[in-house]
């Protein structure tokens, strides 16, 4: 079974996010990037499926800069091939562009399953998988937390609220949006990643694809209004005293 996993570099959300001069994008100069966490789960699920059924795992990325380390790390974890879609993508790509590029690249590849992350934390739109499935004319299921394959059919678990899940059968080939793998993503030791960097090669492809989302971002802004927490300052002791007093006042602590 051949599995393709798409991986995306996204800003580390623990860092400060500054809006640039245009007011419509983040200032990329100051961003620290890391792999989208759901893509890490997608890769883990793909590696588990390969271990169970044989076949290959290919990681596929758009070259928006700084993706090499993520691709080498995936190879170090057990992926067989790393493919980078090259072009003028330094400013990032929209979901529609990414989907069109993936569709074009996949036309030249052999795949039974394409696993994407359920959504990327930068745009939170979860569109790439469904758009890609539509372009490839294959089925798609989102919010998946476990995949089993039997012949040409996959059985997936789709998560709903309250811990309820649905078991859904999907004909292959298919695109699945992965929320969580069956087990926490594995870790690749740095020494192994270094070794892979010396010996492995990232393949480059340059498909042409254009797409228009029909959406115009007018402005970005920091959340405003709503409740703003009253910040309790001071040493840990002072903070703890304030909190205990508060808990008493609200009847959470008696006495």
């Amino acid at each position: 079974m051949n599995i393709v996993v798409t991986v995306k570099q996204v800003p580390d959300l623990v860092e400060d996010l500054e809006i640039d001069q245009s007011g419509k994008a983040l200032d990329r100069d100051w961003l620290k990037f890391k792999i989208n966490e759901f893509d890490e789960h997608a890769l883990e699920e793909a590696l588990l499926l390969k271990e169970a059924h044989g076949g290959t795992v290919t990681v596929l990325a758009v070259d928006t800069g700084e993706v090499d380390e993520t691709l080498y790390t995936a190879l170090a974890k057990g992926a067989d091939r790393a493919v980078k879609i090259v072009g003028d993508f330094a400013a990032g790509v929209t979901s529609h562009q990414a989907a069109a590029l993936f569709a074009a690249a996949l036309k030249e590849m052999d795949y039974d399953l394409v696993l994407t992350g359920v959504q990327a934390v930068d745009d939170l739109d979860g569109q790439v998988g469904p758009l890609l499935a539509a372009a490839l004319r294959v089925p798609h299921v989102s919010v998946v937390t476990g995949v089993d394959v039997d012949g040409r059919v996959a059985t997936v678990r789709k998560e709903y609220a309250g811990g309820v899940m649905a078991e859904i059968e999907v004909d292959l080939p298919a695109v699945l949006g992965i929320q969580a793998a069956k087990q926490p993503p594995r870790y690749a030791p740095v020494s192994r990643v270094r070794q892979v960097m010396r010996t492995a090669r990232i393949e480059e492809v340059e498909p042409s694809a254009a797409a228009d989302a029909g959406v115009e971002v007018r402005r970005l802004f920091k959340p405003e209004g709503g409740r703003q927490a009253e910040i309790i300052e001071g040493s840990p002791e002072e903070v703890a005293d304030r909190l205990v007093a508060l808990f008493r006042e609200k009847g959470i602590l008696k006495g």
Binding site: P223, A229, P236, A240, L243, V244, R248, K254, G255
Partner: peptide, 30 residues
């Protein structure tokens, strides 16, 4: 963003605050 829904916030390290808070809550609860 959690500070956008919290009533009270502490900007600090949970490893510094939780143990002290536990102590003080125990004292208060007697």
């Amino acid at each position: 963003p959690i500070f956008g829904v919290a009533h009270y916030g502490v900007v600090g390290d949970l490893f510094d605050i939780l143990p002290v808070l536990t102590e003080k809550v125990r004292e208060a609860a007697g």
